[in-house]
C-alpha cells in the first residue's frame, strides 16, 4: 500500500522528526489506557512513535464523542499549552503506543530553532480539518460513504506490522456515535460491505479487501 498518512512527521521531514523525538521522555501506553484526560492540567504534549489513539471529547452530561484519530507521526496534546490551561479532550490508546512526552516550552523552542513555526501552523490547519465531525459527520455524504471512510481511516492509520491491523477496534455503537448515524444504519451498511466482500463475514468487523472498501468510500 502506497498510502502514507500526512502527519507532523511528513510536514517536518524524517530528520526533523527524529530531532524532535530526542527532546522527549520515552513512554509506552497499553491499549485502552489514557495518554491524557480532559480537564487535567497541560504543559506537555505527546509525539506518537507507533500506534493509533482516539481523541475523545466528553460532554458535561457524560456523553463521549470521537473527535479524531491520530497515529504514528502525529503530535497530540499541544493545545493545552501551560500548566494553567486544561486539557480540552482525552486521548486513549487504541493499540499499544510508543510515544515521547515533550514539555510544551521545549516544543516551541524547537519550532523556532528549526524554523518550523510555519509548518506547525500548516499542521494545525490539517488537524482542525481532519476531525471526525468535519470529515465524516458534517460532510453530506450518504451513510455508505461515511461508514466506509471511517473504517478506511482506521485501517490506514493502523501500525503496518500489527497482525490484526484489519480488525476494526470500535464497536458498532461507537461507529454509529462517531458518525452521527443510527446504530441500525451502521449495521445495514456493515451488512452491505460484507456482501460486496469489502469486509469479511463473521461476528467481528474485519476489513477483507482495502481496494473494495476504498471504492465504497469513494477514495
Amino acid at each position: 500500500m502506497a498510502e502514507r498518512p500526512l502527519g507532523f512527521r511528513a510536514l517536518l521531514g524524517d530528520e526533523g522528526w527524529a530531532r524532535l523525538l530526542m527532546l522527549g521522555t520515552h513512554r509506552e501506553f497499553a491499549s485502552g489506557t489514557y495518554l491524557m484526560r480532559q480537564g487535567e492540567p497541560g504543559g506537555y504534549l505527546v509525539a506518537l512513535v507507533s500506534g493509533r489513539v482516539k481523541v475523545l471529547g466528553h460532554t458535561p452530561d457524560g456523553d463521549e464523542l470521537l473527535v479524531s484519530l491520530r497515529s504514528a507521526g502525529d503530535v497530540v496534546g499541544e493545545m493545552a499549552t501551560g500548566e494553567h490551561s486544561r486539557r480540552t479532550v482525552s486521548v486513549m490508546a487504541i493499540d499499544r503506543c510508543i510515544a515521547k512526552v515533550i514539555e510544551t516550552h521545549r516544543f516551541h523552542r524547537f519550532l523556532e530553532e528549526n524554523r518550523a513555526v510555519g509548518r506547525y501552523a500548516d499542521y494545525l490547519v490539517l488537524k482542525l480539518s481532519q476531525t471526525i465531525p468535519s470529515q465524516m459527520q458534517l460532510a453530506r455524504f450518504p451513510a455508505e460513504r461515511r461508514v466506509a471512510r471511517l473504517l478506511h481511516e482506521l485501517v490506514t492509520l493502523a501500525p503496518p506490522d500489527k497482525p490484526d491491523r484489519f480488525l476494526i477496534p470500535l464497536s458498532q455503537g461507537e461507529l454509529a456515535r462517531a458518525l452521527g448515524l443510527a446504530r441500525s444504519t451502521v449495521a445495514e451498511q456493515i451488512a452491505l460491505l460484507r456482501s460486496t466482500g469489502a469486509l469479511s463475514s463473521g461476528r467481528r468487523v474485519v476489513v477483507a479487501d482495502v481496494r473494495k472498501l476504498r471504492r465504497h468510500a469513494g477514495l
Binding site: 502506497a2 498510502e3 502514507r4 498518512p5 500526512l6 490539517l126 480539518s129 481532519q130 468535519s134 470529515q135 460532510a139 481511516e153 490506514t156 476504498r214 477514495l219
Partner: peptide, 16 residues
Amino acid sequence: DELLHRNARGLAAGHG
C-alpha cells in the same frame, strides 16, 4: 476539504 483529506491520507495518484 476533499482534496486535503485525500492528500493527508496519501491517496492522490502520484504517490505522496
